[in-house]
């Protein structure tokens, strides 16, 4: 993690805030830990440090869904961790990158934080990566109308592996349908326009 990354904690209770800080501090995830009291103050902090880890009491999300959504769409580099101390609707929790509860041990909490930071880095890395040679081969065949089975036979790999490649291709490009991927393949000159079929 970069040294200038900060941890922001949206929690108005001093007991809970101080408690969490005590547990986080020794692990040195970040140089700076700050308590904030509103989404507005949170945004202000994020404008200064884009790559922050943010702890939020999910109950505040239930009351300010719009602010929360905005947070998600505006700050792509942040990691959001739900800080729970009572039951929360799983629908709300699913919008977070990770969840910790007040029952968690110090070890567990720090493990969760490290994991979240690592996976965020991974996300960003994979988005920037170009397709691998194998993925390009799969994409070319896909654009020419081959089925998964035919691609597997052609490349001498299992259908399962073909599916894995397809999943990775979609993750990297943001495009899921075969016809959408075909246009992507043409745009990047992986196939010529008379090689393709667009009937999916």
């Amino acid at each position: 993690m970069k040294p200038d990354t900060s941890i922001l904690i949206l929690e108005s209770s001093s007991i809970l805030y101080e408690g969490l800080v005590q547990l986080l501090q020794p692990a040195q995830h970040a140089r700076k830990i700050k308590q904030v009291f509103s989404f507005q103050e949170l945004e202000f902090g994020l404008d200064l440090h884009e790559e922050s880890v943010v702890f939020i009491n999910p109950h505040s999300v239930q009351y300010s869904p719009k602010e929360f959504q905005q947070l998600r769409s505006k700050y792509l580099k942040i990691s959001l961790i739900a800080f729970c101390y009572m039951y929360v609707d799983p629908k709300v929790l699913s919008q977070f990158d990770a969840v910790i509860t007040i029952q968690d041990s110090q070890e567990m909490i720090n493990h969760t934080v490290s994991q979240v930071i690592q996976s965020k880095k991974g996300d960003q890395a994979s988005q920037n990566l170009l397709l691998s040679d194998r993925e390009i081969e799969v994409l070319q065949l896909l654009a020419q109308g081959y089925t998964n089975k035919q691609i597997a036979d052609h490349l001498n790999i299992s259908v399962h592996t073909v599916n894995t490649h397809r999943k990775n291709i979609s993750q990297k490009t943001g495009i899921k349908s075969v016809s959408g991927l075909t246009i992507y393949a043409v745009t990047n000159n992986y196939v010529t326009i008379d090689q393709i079929t667009l009937a999916h």
């Binding site: 490009t173 943001g174 495009i175 899921k176 349908s177 016809s179 959408g180 246009i183 992507y184 745009t187 990047n188």
Partner: peptide, 11 residues
């Protein structure tokens, strides 16, 4: 979704 992605990212 694909249409939006193609439009913004690639075309």
């Amino acid at each position: 979704d694909d249409l939006m992605n193609l439009l913004v990212k690639y075309l």
